[in-house]
Design a protein around this nucleic acid. Structure first.
Lengths: 197, 197
DNA sequence: TGGTAAGTGGAGACCCCCGTCCACTTGAGG
DNA sequence: CCTCAAGTGGACGGGGGTCTCCACTTACCA
């Protein structure tokens, strides 16, 4: 690949990440191209479809999520690990308007194994937090999906506001996850496939 | 107005409510017209703009919300009143995919006074619940907006799932609203104008 | 320094959506 | 029953989105 082409590709990707974060996935391809200082054709030569651009732009974020869970599994205090996971992922989500949509958009089975592993890791984290007695026993791993969906609802207000709101929402929820004693409605099996359309 | 015209108008409105609830506001006008068994022109004759149709289709729901708050203010137990408000409004929102968007869509100042009154009433309810000692002191009325935004994030999964998920989310949150003792991040002034674009 | 394949940009094909226009149809009063 | 204003449907204009095509330009290697 020629040097200028590589540079253009990188610039397109950076611009896409910025615009997706700022305005969500519905930003037009033409806007990305214009801001990156290239034509639409250049963009489509590197990313044959909008979906592929979205995917590429967000794989980094998804990797961070996996990393966050890995870190938490290494934390000797499973409750603190769980809190950190939820806090970090929610902040990531609140700071990036496209995150939820990119995650929700049915994306190829390419990542299906990764998702599976992440899910299992999170399940292990939940079990350990329960065993340590700090997480309420009726917490379900599906409640993570619940939190992510709810937190995703904050996208749509300006990013700084969404970030602050997310912090408060998560604080409220984590309090309930730890200390709740009331009987809850049953957990909802929010399988990812359900969320991914 | 001619009899057949009145009937067509009613059928369009009913269909619009159904489709908005089921698929959200992005359902095309043509789909509503087709399902109602009329042409597009008929639809536009009665509702000059899509926004006007949305407004008309949802005023009932908004009135129900106001009614829910009125009832709560008459409840001798302010805490129970507050819980009922949040539960009912959230269920309404979860059962109707268009609700959040209709509420969020900047709608005419026509309802601005209504919104103001609703907001004041809710503030009174919050104050009474705090005075009775059942609602945590650092609860902010803006937390209602927070709840509504979060709950709105559940739209996008099928309605029955969203309903169940909403119930569980609200249960988690209400527990924190009552019994929380941890120090929270500061409340976020989620003024309606901010949410409405 | 010139040849060439890789790279590029903009016009435009195609599609979907909102809202309008107009020739045709139909309900209801005299 | 007849008239005609009210009512109706479908074609169409305008705008905005994704993606393609093609004539032109440019980086790199000999």
């Amino acid at each position: 690949m020629r040097a200028d082409a590589r540079e253009n590709r990188a610039r397109v990707l950076a611009v896409a990440r910025d615009l997706f974060a700022e305005r969500g996935l519905e930003v037009p391809m033409a806007a990305i191209a214009r801001r990156a200082g290239v034509g639409v054709a250049t963009l489509y030569r590197r990313f044959p479809t909008k979906e592929s651009l979205v995917m590429e732009a967000f794989t980094e974020q998804f990797a961070i999520c996996q990393g966050v869970i890995d870190d938490a599994l290494r934390d000797p205090d499973p409750w603190r690990g769980l809190c950190t996971v939820i806090e970090k992922v929610c902040l990531l989500q609140a700071a990036d308007r496209g995150f939820t949509a990119a995650f929700t958009a049915s994306f190829p089975e390419l990542h299906s194994e990764v998702r599976h592993r992440t899910w299992e890791d999170f399940g292990a984290l939940v079990q350990r937090a329960k065993d340590s007695g700090q997480l309420r026993a009726d917490f379900s791993p599906h409640d993570l999906t619940l939190v992510l969906l709810a937190n995703g609802g904050l996208s749509g207000v300006p990013v700084e506001v969404a970030t602050a709101a997310s912090r408060r929402l998560v604080a409220y929820l984590l309090e309930s996850f730890r200390s709740g004693t009331d009987v809850l409605p049953p957990p909802v099996p929010l399988s990812l496939d359900l969320v991914l359309r």
